[in-house]
Design a protein around this nucleic acid. Sequence first.
DNA 1: GCAATATACTAGGACATCCAAGGGTTTGGA
DNA 2: TCCAAACCCTTGGATGTCCTAGTATATTGC
Lengths: 168, 168
Amino acid sequence: MGTPLPRDPIADAQRNWERHGWGDVAAPMAAITAIMRTQQILLARIEGVLKPFGLTFARYELLALLSFARSGALPMNKASALLQVHPTSVTNAVDRLQDAGLVVRSPHPTDGRTTLIELTAEGRTLAKSATAALNAEVFGQSGFAGHDVDQLIRILGKFRRNAGDFAD
Amino acid sequence: MGTPLPRDPIADAQRNWERHGWGDVAAPMAAITAIMRTQQILLARIEGVLKPFGLTFARYELLALLSFARSGALPMNKASALLQVHPTSVTNAVDRLQDAGLVVRSPHPTDGRTTLIELTAEGRTLAKSATAALNAEVFGQSGFAGHDVDQLIRILGKFRRNAGDFAD
DNA sequence: GCAATATACTAGGACATCCAAGGGTTTGGA
DNA sequence: TCCAAACCCTTGGATGTCCTAGTATATTGC
């Protein structure tokens, strides 16, 4: 994890694939492996920025989502669907955010099954600060050229639609 | 996680960013979020294919790496560096692969600090089968157009080099 | 109106990742 | 030569994710 490798390990893997007669799938394999690794790098950067705020990426995402909801409150299942994570992951995140005083659970006015997650004043403030930090230190210095950003949004958007993420 | 959303949640987030006056970083934010989500989708597909083999992605990666080493053996720290994961993750993976009889630990002949991980015959066989399945069911049907695969390899390769993954 | 089905959240377990700390081994400078 | 620093792996703790129930509440159908 420390020092740079002398050569690109993913390019090496691609060569290994070709050498074993899997040349027809070597390129997609390399692209997919590169996505996995890139996600790892980006996640580490994001978590590094959020650490001083006492937030992880999962908790930040939930906080940010709530801060964009007009009422500052969302049902658990709605949050789970929008964040595209398992409901139990939302339960876990809410537990910890609630312990930190950033959100509160409240009963749904008409449906006794659902629980609303609501941002506290501190939660709203912290979300603002954390977003400003992420904008300045990660998104503003992403390391992607402007044109490449457009390509990524286009390619990955197409992929996500085909994967059934959204109808649009 | 189940039904497709009516609209792309990442495009919505990008609009939210622009609406709040962060238009200058909205696009990189969307690209990065898309990478996170794409990784999630791909990982789920991969784990689904590997499940019948009793493997997770982390264990498969280690198995595949060993199968490409001429001797079928690698030091732990070498594996950690090449897979770009924390040493404790390798310890964890080796523990489970060893329990499954797919690898064995052996002492390094000259360096008493180092432990070698060695593929067993079953490990080598399973690695071959699992790779064939991944090639057929994931890499061979990635959902990326040929030209987009090239773009991804180029863009993400540049990113990873800038991030200090390799010198090349 | 009541039972059957569907929905929403929570509890417990498995797995992976990281960090911090510890114990054994090797290396290199005093 | 010898001891401190560097290196390698493992253990223990925290977090996150998913899956499989399990409990409670709503909705639907007869």
